[in-house]
Write a protein that binds this DNA or RNA. Structure first.
Length: 256
DNA sequence: ATGGTGGCACCGCCA
C-alpha cells in the first residue's frame, strides 16, 4: 500500500497538480487538506475519470478535507466527536481493513488566542476518539497537516521560531499525547537528518529555493502498520511546478 | 528587509 498526504491550499486551484501526481505515482490513498471549497462546488468533474474514488467534506473558503482511493471506500466518518465548531478538519475512511484518518489540525493563529486553545483541545478530542474507537493492535494510519514541528530538526531556525504556534512546548506535548495512543512517525523511521520539510511559507522570499521550511505534515502509523512500512519520503517535485501549493506531498509505502 | 505571497470571498480573513 502506498499512502500520501498533501495540503493543496485549494483543491480547485490545484486539481491539475493532484491529477498529474495521482497519474504519475499511483498511490492507493491520498489524503488532501485545505480543499477550501464547499461540497456543492467540489470539482467532481475534474476527477471523474482519474480512476480514483473520493470523498470530501468542505466549507466555504477555509479548511476542508478530501480522501482519494483506488479501491472501495467504506465506513466514512466526517467530523471529530466533541468538536462543535463545524470546521471541516476530519475525515476517516476504511480501505480494505485499514482505517485512514485524514486531519487538518487547527493552525492556532497566536499563542494567546482562542484559536490556540481550540488547537490544543482538538488534539485532546482526537486522542479520546482513538481511545474509544480503536485498539493499538489495529491497522490505522493517521495522516495530514498536523501543524506541529516535532523537534528542532523540523524547522529552519529553531531558536528564533521556538514559541510559535506550530513549534512550542504545548503543541509538541499535545501531539505526543495523541501519539501515545500507539502511533509512530514513519518518516523518522527512515530519515534522521534535519532540513527535511513539507511546508515553505509563501511569504518568505524564495523560501522553497532557500529551503526555509517546516515539517508539518505527517504519516502516523499504528504498531502493526509501522512495522510493515518500507519507506517514507517527501516528494518535492510538485513544489517546483507553476502555482504550487505551499506544502508538498509526503508519501509512505507499506507491505500490505 | 518591520515587508513579503496566495486563496477565497468580498472590500478583510486566514495561513
Amino acid at each position: 500500500m502506498k499512502a500520501a498526504t498533501f495540503n493543496a491550499n485549494s483543491i480547485r486551484s490545484r486539481a491539475g497538480i493532484v491529477l498529474d501526481w495521482l497519474e504519475a505515482n499511483q498511490p492507493d490513498v491520498l489524503c488532501i487538506q485545505e480543499t477550501k471549497v464547499q461540497d456543492d462546488h467540489f470539482p467532481v468533474k475534474a476527477f471523474e475519470d482519474c480512476g480514483y474514488n473520493f470523498v470530501y467534506k468542505g466549507q466555504k473558503a477555509y479548511n476542508g478535507v478530501a480522501t482519494f482511493a483506488r479501491g472501495q471506500i467504506e465506513d466514512v466518518k466526517i467530523g471529530l466527536d466533541g468538536d462543535e465548531s463545524e470546521q471541516a478538519r476530519f475525515l476517516k475512511v476504511n480501505l480494505g481493513g485499514v482505517s485512514i484518518v485524514n486531519t487538518y489540525v487547527p493552525q492556532g493563529r497566536a499563542p494567546d488566542s482562542e484559536q490556540f486553545l481550540y488547537k490544543l483541545e482538538w488534539f485532546g478530542q482526537l486522542r479520546e476518539w482513538f481511545d474509544k474507537n480503536f485498539s493499538p493492535g489495529e491497522d490505522v494510519l493517521w495522516m495530514g497537516d498536523l501543524n506541529v514541528a516535532m523537534d528542532a530538526r523540523d524547522v529552519h531556525d529553531p531558536e528564533k521560531l521556538w514559541g510559535s504556534v506550530c513549534y512550542c512546548q504545548e503543541v509538541q506535548d499535545a501531539l505526543k499525547d495523541v501519539m501515545g495512543w500507539g502511533f509512530t512517525d514513519v518518516f523518522r523511521q527512515f530519515n534522521e537528518e534535519d532540513g527535511l520539510y513539507t511546508f515553505w511559507d509563501y511569504r518568505v522570499p524564495n523560501g522553497f529555493k532557500r529551503n526555509i521550511g517546516w515539517r508539518l505534515d505527517y504519516i502516523m502509523a499504528s504498531k502493526s502498520m509501522a512495522g510493515r512500512c518500507t519507506g517514507c519520503w517527501v516528494d518535492k517535485e510538485p513544489r517546483a511546478l507553476k502555482k504550487p501549493s505551499d506544502h508538498t506531498f509526503l508519501v509512505a509505502e507499506f507491505d500490505i
